[in-house]
């Protein structure tokens, strides 16, 4: 037996920081932001922050599954840049044939989704079937996609044909009932992600695989399939994020998506998902993404902090958010 067995279960009294930690951090940030600048809570600013969170957010939802399943994907930022470049090239190439219009936009979307699926599949295949460390595989593909987009862009910037830009622009800037599309898509992705994580067999299996893949295997879970699917889903979501990204500026360059992978991973961890796998929560990831975006936003809206220190403040808040939710009972 172990001594812990006879212990009573977690006492109901007191606050459960493990759950509340990220929410508290978010609330504190909102209060600080509102106090520092009157426009912080304006509809325009809230829309801005939420829509710009959408790219990283959509990717981070996928990343939550990969990390919960005991994996890691460093390639998503480069992958997004590459898919954006590809999407622009395809649309530019098809423009003379199809003319500017929604059919061409759908071709672009299809390109992004197919490319994302394939990219996720490649990562998953190398990690599961070829049994190479996820860190190494995705470090490799990260460099490959970054180089490919630089090569496609000839070192410069890939720009969507000007005629097409006004057609595709609404995907980022318009919406329904005053809510912009990126926010709507992000919300849909987050809600379905949360549902899958909590209530679908796939979410349960991913957590089981990340927790102990031997147990999962002995419990008739197809471990490779589950792992593979986490990477494929992430690839698809990178495609979705790219579909939101391209309409914003209509361009892709070697600097597109730089460090997105780390922001996505940071958001996942701030949200309470365990980096070593086995436990994940999508709603936490959403909060993590919002925390990261808000820090930037607040620093831009206030004077008095040297912009050189933005990174330091982000770092401190990330570490604090994780300390807040650490299990106090953790024994040495």
């Amino acid at each position: 037996m172990t001594a812990t067995e006879t212990r009573p279960s977690r006492p109901a009294r007191g606050v459960n920081l493990k759950v509340l930690g990220p929410i508290l951090a978010l609330v504190v940030l909102v209060i600080v932001g509102a106090a520092l600048n009157g426009n912080f809570l304006s509809a325009a600013n809230i829309t801005n922050v939420l829509s710009r969170s959408a790219f990283i957010g959509i990717i981070a939802v996928g990343m939550t599954f990969v990390i919960t399943g005991g994996g890691l994907d460093l390639s998503v930022g480069s992958m997004a840049a590459f898919i954006a470049g590809l999407m622009i090239l395809v649309m530019n190439a098809m423009l003379p044939v199809m003319g500017p219009g929604w059919p061409l936009v759908f071709v672009g979307m299809l390109t992004a989704m197919v490319a994302g699926t394939l990219a996720g599949f490649v990562n998953g295949f190398l990690i599961t079937t070829m049994r190479i460390e996820a860190f190494i595989v995705t470090l490799g593909t990260m460099g490959i996609y970054r180089s490919l987009v630089t090569w496609l862009a000839d070192g410069g910037t890939l720009s969507l044909d000007f005629g097409m830009r006004s057609v595709i622009r609404p995907i980022y800037f318009d919406g329904i009932l005053g809510i912009s599309w990126p926010i709507i898509v992000f919300a849909l992705v987050a809600i379905s992600g949360e549902l899958v994580m909590r209530r679908a067999a796939f979410g349960r299996h991913a957590a089981a695989v990340g927790s102990n893949d031997q147990v999962a295997r002995y419990s008739s879970v197809n471990v490779n399939r589950v792992r593979m699917l986490t990477y494929v889903f992430l690839g698809i979501l990178v495609g979705v994020a790219t579909i939101m990204y391209v309409p914003r500026l209509g361009s892709a360059s070697p600097s597109t998506g730089v460090l997105w992978e780390l922001e996505a991973i940071a958001a996942v961890i701030i949200g309470g998902t365990m980096l070593k796998g086995g436990f994940g929560r999508v709603w936490g990831t959403v909060i993590g993404v919002l925390i990261l975006s808000l820090i930037d936003n607040i620093l831009n809206l206030t004077d008095g902090v040297s912009p050189y220190l933005n990174g330091a403040i982000q770092g401190v808040i990330i570490i604090l958010a994780v300390i807040l939710q650490r299990d106090k009972k953790a024994e040495s």
Binding site: N37, A44, N48, R52, L249, N297, N300, L301, P307
Partner: peptide
């Protein structure tokens, strides 16, 4: 009014300008 780093980058400067416009 203010100076902020956009890092010679379209995405970063887009975000910073959005925030300037709010501010």
């Amino acid at each position: 009014l203010a100076m902020e780093h956009g890092n010679w980058n379209r995405d970063d400067s887009f975000t910073v300008m959005q925030d300037f416009l709010s501010k």
